[in-house]
């Protein structure tokens, strides 16, 4: 175990979390990410027993999940594994595939609504040009948000993960928190 202490994408020792009315934004610093791309002509593997999802879909199974990112490409997620070499573990589960460590390429903000879908969809309407009706539970997409590129993974009716570039964590937090704050008025 290394004796270097990690910091979160926001530069803190503990993940950021803040509530705005019914919405809570939380940085998920524990989520490990690794990309998986098929080699030419290769069949999709089932790493950790996950059936890799179809276009614009996401699946979860316990602490693990996968979402589609492009043709023949997925991002595999593992809750609480951010400080392990998750890419190596995935590589072992998906022999022959191209696997790349992505954990620290991204910052993950989980947005949770305590008052149904409406606040979540209102927040989306201020930030992304995506029809919330087409991004139901189990759907994912990649799109623009305030000149940044983000993955959106709709984990449930009331929960949305916004996954952006790690170096943009501060700007992304600003955009999300300001929009959530403005919904209170």
């Amino acid at each position: 175990m290394t004796d270097l202490l990690p910091v979160t994408a926001m530069g803190d020792s503990a993940p950021r979390s803040e509530s705005f009315g019914p919405l809570t934004l939380s940085e998920n610093a524990g989520l490990a990410l690794a990309s998986l791309a098929l080699r030419q002509g290769q069949d999709a593997p089932t790493p950790f027993g996950l059936t890799l999802p179809d276009v614009a879909r996401a699946v979860t199974s316990g602490e693990l999940g996968a979402f589609w990112t492009g043709r023949g490409q997925w991002m595999i997620e593992a809750e609480g594994k951010a400080e392990s070499d998750f890419a190596a573990a995935l590589k072992a589960e998906a022999p022959g595939c191209s696997v790349t460590e992505q954990t620290d390429g991204f910052v993950v903000f989980e947005v949770v609504s305590e008052a149904g879908t409406a606040p979540l969809e209102a927040l989306m309407s201020k930030l992304v040009n995506i029809d919330p009706k087409t991004l139901g539970p189990g759907c994912c997409t990649r799109t623009g948000l305030e000149h940044m590129t983000v993955f959106l993974v709709r984990r449930s009716e009331t929960r949305l993960a916004v996954i952006g570039m790690r170096s943009l964590a501060g700007s992304l937090w600003h955009a999300l928190s300001q929009a959530a704050h403005r919904l209170e008025y």
Partner: peptide, 13 residues
Amino acid sequence: LDVQLISTTDAWA
């Protein structure tokens, strides 16, 4: 060609 690309700029300090 069998080649896969992904950006890793932010992943590594």
